[in-house]
């Protein structure tokens, strides 16, 4: 469920793609490169830089939901993520608060193509339910994040178009438009700001099915882990239509905790605390 949107690494981009993109970034597009090719190259480089993290756990996640009047409610949860190189990642989310949903857990096997596989565990009745994952545009636990905003962001899920270079809060960024190719997306397009130095997603604008600006996601407090992987401490999603917003705090990332695929099945879902 973590976005690989929070990708990128710090190493200078000596890869072929990296050089190409760096060149493009500084100069006008070269040769036959179309805006579509450049957009894909940027997304591919961002993905490459975030490959190989293995697994990580975020023990203390907090979601603060705020309505137009400023009233807040919050959820506390924990997430475990396991990288799958040839498909989407696996993750396990367990809720800790509010207390009436404590122990409720969600297991997701993301796929590059097609619907994800999802199982929900209901602790009161000790029941594991396979649930529909076609609800991509639906709200995740009442927040302004949709399932599709939080699932594993695979390159194959979009087509791309490079728009322009732009400075965002003093950071030089690529601005790329991307179009969901999976079914049942709530969006016609998204505009993504990747910073040129580290290929970190800094901001995303989401446009709804009518083509209007619906939501804006911003990333805050990036930190680097294992000298490579950048993760934000805070993500803020603002809904421009409703005036509601959700802050998502990621506290205490721990990488390479020794998780294996055995930690991501229906048995481990039932045991999750």
């Amino acid at each position: 469920m973590l976005s690989k949107d929070l990708r990128p690494l710090n190493r200078p981009a000596f890869g072929l793609f990296g050089l190409a993109v760096a060149a493009l970034a500084l100069t006008a597009p070269v040769g036959a490169s179309t805006p579509e090719q450049i957009g894909l190259e940027i997304a591919t480089e961002a993905d490459r830089r975030d490959t190989g993290f293995g697994d990580y756990v975020v023990e203390d996640m907090k979601m603060v939901l705020r309505n137009r009047q400023g009233q807040e409610s919050s959820r506390e949860l924990q997430i475990k993520i396991f990288e799958v190189l040839d498909d989407g990642d696996k993750n396990l989310i367990v809720f800790d608060r509010p207390r009436d949903i404590k122990g409720t857990a969600l297991l997701t096997f993301a796929h590059k193509v097609g619907d994800d596989d999802q199982w929900l565990y209901l602790p009161a009745v000790k029941r594991v339910k396979r649930i529909s994952s076609s609800n991509k545009s639906g709200s995740f636990v009442g927040s302004e994040f949709a399932y599709e905003d939080l699932t594993s962001q695979e390159i194959e899920k979009y087509t791309y178009k490079y728009l322009r270079d732009e400075s965002l809060d003093g950071l030089d960024c690529f601005v790329v438009e991307r179009y969901p190719v999976y079914e049942n997306s709530g969006y016609t397009r998204q505009v993504v700001w990747w910073d040129k130095a580290e290929y970190r997603v800094m901001k995303v604008d989401y446009y709804d099915r009518k083509g209007d600006l619906l939501k804006t996601l911003t990333y805050h407090g990036y930190q680097q882990y294992l000298d490579q992987y950048w993760r934000a401490d805070k993500m803020v999603m603002v809904n421009h239509l409703t005036g509601k917003s959700t802050d998502l705090f990621w506290n205490n990332y721990v990488f390479r905790t020794g998780l294996s695929e055995r930690d991501f099945n229906r048995n481990s879902l039932k045991r999750a605390k």
């Binding site: 529909s132 076609s134 609800n135 545009s137 639906g138 709200s139 009442g142 049942n184 709530g186």
Partner: peptide, 12 residues
Amino acid sequence: YTFFGIFGSNMD
């Protein structure tokens, strides 16, 4: 069978 996001809302 679930109708997701009925009437353009978050309701299912």
